[in-house]
Design a protein around this nucleic acid. Structure first.
Length: 115
DNA sequence: ATTCTGACGTGGG
DNA sequence: CCCCACGCCAGAA
């Protein structure tokens, strides 16, 4: 396994920590991992996380609260359905009152992840 | 090897 | 409000 896999694993670990009914952004995760400028890689990691059911990719959205990755899920609005079923209000592919649901790794975890 | 794209974010005009 | 450019890095053609 290459080091890059480690990065992916780190993403998974963080995303797995997202509680039910909460969401976070790619940038926030990337920043927590020390790769603030590699938010795209987080999305890439999500792509690879498709095999892992433990990774709630639907709880990761962009900083606007926009469900940019909904198209990558099964069907067209599965991502939105999953979030709404968790009590997240969504309109026009965008999470409403994002701040209320936002889960910041730094604030919520506040500590490095045990690896 | 080169080029382009992408589930992003920030900054500038 | 809109559009553009840059950084970042992995993968596909």
């Amino acid at each position: 396994m290459a080091d890059s896999d480690n990065f992916f694993l780190r993403v998974y670990v963080v995303v797995k920590q997202i509680p039910y009914g909460r969401v976070t952004s790619y940038g926030a995760v990337a920043k927590y991992l020390g790769a603030a400028r590699s938010a795209r890689m987080v999305g890439w990691a999500m792509n690879a996380s498709h095999n892992m059911e433990d990774v709630p990719a639907h709880r990761v959205v962009n900083k606007q609260g926009l469900l940019t990755g909904k198209h990558h899920f099964d069907g067209t609005n599965l991502m939105q359905q999953l979030l709404e079923s968790e009590g997240v209000l969504i309109k026009e592919n965008q999470i409403q009152n994002l701040e209320a649901y936002f889960w910041d790794p730094f604030k919520e975890l506040g500590t490095p992840i045990d690896f």
